[in-house]
Design a protein around this nucleic acid. Structure first.
Lengths: 235, 235
DNA sequence: AAAGTTATATGATAAAAATCATAAAAAAAA
DNA sequence: TTTTTTTTATGATTTTTATCATATAACTTT
């Protein structure tokens, strides 16, 4: 499934969103020399929790979920990554194994930058350290907020919040209402920290209240303000 | 309550545990010039969640809890800090407000290093960035693990895990069994993400099983291996 | 020492959510 | 297309945990 496709040099990386986009041309070339652009089909695993960290992944185009396994193999989604974002940097920075499993949620193109190249670029460009510190800080803030949400909110609040997070992370289709991401009910449950059945019931309940609309895996947010209220984001 | 006590220069900081301990003598003097050593009585707040971040706190001697407020003002303890550790660095690094409230759990002595000094030292010593990246990574790893624990474990498992965490964080008294930290049942609940009543019942239950011993606020771990099993740390 | 306050304890009850069982629908594979 | 597998749905039941009420114990403050 994984296939090395025609290499795209970082020098003409068009999305303009990555932390590498503001490197000098030389630095970009230095990165491109060794990186490979790989194709991952929807559902495919990019790396597993506990794997030795050999490189950093730069998401050229795609949508990725990062999850960890808990009790009895139940999955918990801890983070998402979308086009322009990087994965696996924490393991590299703290010389650790990958702490989560990365799975492609849609067909994705991902550049892999080997560990030593990445660390060299970090030495070459001190601004990169600051960007990484900012990324880590942001991730930590999100994780801690997620922690207290799961600890204190009801399933309904968490499902509502999950939908809002999906909207702000992946955006909406042209109608500005339908979430631009397709997930199974079970994945939504893994995100909200509940069971599949509870997630299904809660979604149906929100749909009965005309706050969302369910058309198979397409979820349309009809009343975002209501959803926001239910989610109790304001604490 | 807060009082500036005789300033202790970083140059003779004796605990040897802080990220600043391996700075050069000049760098330490540069830090000491402006920092103040403050005394905080047990129970006192060092900074509040949402406060403007004006500096980094270096815990010269003490025990601190970092907590966030959730739904209906319920507290969630997200992290602890002990002698030699620093607080509030994340806010400074990402130019944000403090994201948690820091409270002294015992009488504590804390150095405050102003924001600009800290940022200058960071520029002066590039190894410091790496140390901070490592700290952030470690905190993020812990937060994500805590997240899935709270999402998936039962109250009993979480209480057992909390006790083990308290042991590994603050250590034990000379008997090697009694936790070297005094917390209310309500604080233990805030740590495990449950209610005070449930925490009390669970502790009593563990005590009935002779796994722990309760003497007021002193908690003695009688069978750490049993507690570890219950905590289900191995996932 | 007495009064007030906070922390701990305990029972009864309610609410929330998980679990189990099963069926129908949808998607994927043969 | 047919078969197989996965996903969604729904009801019944159980388990877990929170909530409420109240009592006692342990500190604090006066």
């Amino acid at each position: 499934m994984k296939a090395v496709v025609n290499n795209i040099p970082c020098t003409n990386c068009e999305h303009g969103k990555s932390i590498f986009c503001h490197l000098t041309e030389e630095e970009k070339s230095f990165l491109s020399e060794v990186k490979g652009l790989n194709y991952y089909k929807k559902g495919q695993t990019i790396f597993y929790e506990g794997n030795h960290a050999h490189g950093i992944f730069c998401l050229h185009d795609g949508k990725i979920k990062l999850s960890k396994l808990g009790k009895d193999g139940k999955e918990q989604i801890v983070r998402f990554a979308k086009t322009g974002e990087i994965l696996g940097y924490r393991a590299l920075l703290s010389n650790d194994n990958y702490q989560a499993t990365a799975t492609a949620m849609v067909d994705s193109y991902i550049c892999i930058i080997p560990k030593d190249r990445f660390l060299k670029i970090m030495e070459m460009n001190s601004k990169l350290s600051l960007k990484l510190i900012n990324l880590l800080s942001k991730d930590l803030k999100t994780a801690e907020q997620h922690l207290i949400d799961i600890a204190q909110k009801s399933v309904k609040e968490r499902i509502a919040e999950s939908l809002m997070v999906l909207g702000s992370t992946f955006g909406y289709l042209k109608d500005q209402k339908t979430l631009n991401i397709s997930m199974t009910r079970s994945e939504i449950a893994d995100m909200a920290g509940t069971t599949t059945e509870s997630a299904i019931r809660t979604l149906i309940h929100l749909s009965d209240e005309k706050i969302i609309d369910l058309e198979g895996k397409n979820i349309k947010i009809l009343k975002p303000q209501k959803l926001l209220e239910i989610a109790n984001i304001n604490d």
